[in-house]
């Protein structure tokens, strides 16, 4: 019950956060928190290192952007459309990748994501290097004008909280238990009669869909879908966020992404602007060498030891 109290406290803080912080930054934090949490579903709870999640994040941004700008879909339908297509991409990529394990799984996801990236670079609808600009925010449920940053913030908060709750539920579901068993001992799960590939595939599709929802929402916030969201750098960054926050913990990826995004924002204007990758690299090395369980993982270990 302590955990649910923690979640309520976090939710309360997020509800009042725009009073103290710039809403655009908060929305960016939320989107990345959802992205990293979705990624953690497949890495932390499924034991599969995907190196191609940028394809879902960036891809959904383009699909949603196109649906809103060109087809004039309502905002929430556009986001659902983008997330749904990301899920279908996940189905296609996952079908191929889950046949292999470990580094081979990572390589297949990376290769497929690179192909998706190439598609986004060369398709006319994405605007290539310029990105897909001028995505209209529209109205939430046809009533609330999302041009207002504060309204937009609560819209984004609702999406990200819903996505996060779905992840929590998935982890604590009959499916989540089988997934944990597969992560722990795949052969044993198979010998108990589970077709492990189908469980991994479902986890992968869920993860891709939610990563897509995060990317789609981000594209509405910034009214822009750009190549950098689909680039493999983004696939790497989400690994870093998840590891830093705590692999396989529910809150970890959100914390990790908050640290990384805040750092990037702070450093971008200072003397270290050109050194952002170096700073992130140092943090990554320090994390892996000294606190491998990540911020939340280490805190949890300390908590358990002392109580």
């Amino acid at each position: 019950m302590k955990t649910s109290a923690g979640y309520l406290l976090a939710l309360a803080a997020l509800l009042v956060a725009p009073l103290a912080f710039y809403p655009i930054l908060l929305m960016k934090l939320l989107c990345f928190a959802l992205f990293a949490s979705a990624f953690n579903l497949i890495l932390g709870f499924g034991g599969l290192l995907s190196f191609g999640h940028a394809a879902f994040f960036g891809g959904a941004a383009y699909f949603t952007g196109h649906a809103l700008k060109v087809w004039g879909l309502p905002t929430e339908m556009g986001i659902l459309f983008g997330a749904g297509l990301a899920g279908l991409m996940g189905l296609a990529i996952g079908q191929l990748a889950i046949r292999r394990q470990g580094i081979y799984f990572a390589m297949i996801t990376l290769a497929m994501a690179q192909m998706a990236y190439f598609f986004f670079v060369s398709s006319p609808f994405t605007g290539g290097e310029n990105g897909l600009q001028g995505i209209p925010r529209g109205k939430a449920l046809g009533v609330f004008d999302l041009q207002d940053d504060l309204t937009m913030y609560y819209f984004v908060l609702a999406i990200c909280v819903a996505g996060f709750l779905l992840i929590v539920r998935t982890v604590h579901s009959p499916f989540g238990q089988v997934l944990a068993a597969i992560r722990d001992n795949e052969n044993r799960a198979r010998s108990l009669g589970y077709d492990v590939e189908r469980y991994k595939l479902l986890a992968f599709v869920l993860s891709a869909t939610l990563a897509g929802a995060a990317g789609a929402t981000k594209s509405v916030v910034f009214q822009l879908a750009s190549l950098s969201d689909a680039h493999w750098h983004m696939s790497g960054e989400v690994v870093l966020m998840t590891l830093l926050g705590g692999l396989g913990t529910l809150a970890g990826p959100a914390v990790g992404s908050a640290v990384i995004v805040t750092l990037q924002n702070k450093l971008a204007t200072g003397v270290l602007a050109a050194w952002v990758p170096v700073v992130l690299g140092v943090i990554f090395v320090a994390c892996v060498l000294t606190f491998r369980r990540g911020i939340v993982g280490e805190l949890r270990a300390i908590w358990r030891k002392s109580f």
Partner: peptide, 18 residues
């Protein structure tokens, strides 16, 4: 329970509580 739950056929239901 992992072994027992297989026969319940709930194991793909990610939206159900454990």
């Amino acid at each position: 329970v992992v072994a027992l739950q297989r026969k319940l056929g709930l194991s793909f239901q990610f939206w159900r509580s454990e």
